[in-house]
Design a protein around this nucleic acid. Structure first.
Ligand SMILES: [Zn+2]
Ligand SMILES: [Zn+2]
Ligand SMILES: [Zn+2]
Ligand SMILES: [Zn+2]
Lengths: 132, 132
DNA sequence: CTCAAATATGTTATATTATAACAAACGTTA
DNA sequence: TAACGTTTGTTATAATATAACATATTTGAG
C-alpha cells in the first residue's frame, strides 16, 4: 500500500518549493532551486513530482508542463481538476466549484465510455492583467 | 489577414497525415512519415501544426503532446474543445456535445476572470478495451 | 529482532518535444 | 515592378522527460 501521509525527504523538498511559489513551476526550475539541497538530477525531481501527483498534493498543468500545489483539499486523488489560466501573466488558479465538478463527474459519453477522471483548463486574461 | 481556406503545401501534407491516422499523432512521428515528401526538419512540422491549430483543423491533446484532426466542424476556432481519452489504447475521441459546450462556455469564475477558451480532457477505459 | 519486500535515492546517459535564428523563395496586391 | 507578408529550408540548440542500474532506507510479517 501507498503511505497516506508521510513524505520522503525529496518529496517534501519539492512540495515545499511548489507550495511557496506564487505560480506554476516547471520541473527544471524546481531542479535549479534545490541543487543547494543536494538534488542534482532531473530524475529526482520527476520521481517526486509523480508521487506528489499520485497523492493529489500537486497537479500538472498540462498546457504549460508546469506544476502547482493543490489548494482544494477535496481533490486528494486528482480525479476532477479544473484550472483558470491567464494567458498574459501565466497565473494559474485551481477552480473548486462543486456544481462544475458534479456536472463533469456525471457527464457520460454517448459512446458508452465511463470516465474515471477529467482535467479542465480555462484560458483568459485575469483581472489584474486587464487593468494594464 | 490569415487566409481562411487555402493550405500551403506543407500544411496540407501534415493535415493529410493527421486526418488519415486512426489515433493521435506525435510531431516526430509525423516527421518520420513525411520525410519521403521532402520535409526534413521538426520546424517544418511544428510550423504547420501551429497554423493548422490556429485554423481549427487540428487540435493538440495536451496530456499526450499529440495531435488529432478536428471532426466536429463547429469548433473552427478551437475555443471550446473536449476529448475522451482511453488510458489503455490511447484512443482519442472529440466530444461534440452542445449542452456541455454551452455549459462550459457560460461558466464564470468567481474571481471575475472572463474565459476566452477552454480545453477539457476526460480519461477512462474505452468500450473496446473493457472487453479484453 | 531479522530478513525480505517495497520504496526511495543517487547517478549517468539518452530520448523526446519544441524553439531560435537566419536566409531564401513565393504569393499577393498596390 | 516594388513592397509586404507568408512560407519554406536549414542548422543548431533549448527544454522536457525517461531508461537503466546500483545502492540505501523504510516497513512489516513472522
Ligand atoms: Zn487540487
Ligand atoms: Zn494575468
Ligand atoms: Zn474540433
Ligand atoms: Zn481503449
Amino acid at each position: 500500500m501507498a503511505r497516506a501521509q508521510t513524505l520522503s525527504r525529496n518529496q517534501q523538498i519539492v512540495l515545499d518549493i511548489i507550495q511557496k511559489a506564487k505560480g506554476p513551476l516547471k520541473a527544471y526550475s524546481i531542479l535549479f532551486n534545490v541543487q543547494k539541497k543536494g538534488i542534482n538530477a532531473p530524475q529526482q525531481i520527476y520521481r517526486a513530482l509523480d508521487k506528489l501527483i499520485g497523492m493529489g498534493k500537486i497537479h500538472k498543468i498540462e498546457s504549460k508542463n508546469a506544476f502547482v500545489a493543490c489548494r482544494s483539499s477535496d481533490c486528494e486523488i486528482s480525479k476532477a481538476t479544473a484550472f483558470s489560466i491567464c494567458e498574459s501573466c501565466e497565473m494559474v488558479d485551481e477552480i473548486s466549484d462543486t456544481k462544475l465538478s458534479k456536472y463533469l463527474s456525471g457527464f457520460n459519453h454517448k459512446k458508452g465510455m465511463k470516465f474515471k477522471r477529467f482535467n479542465l483548463e480555462f484560458f483568459g486574461i485575469c483581472k489584474k492583467c486587464k487593468k494594464d
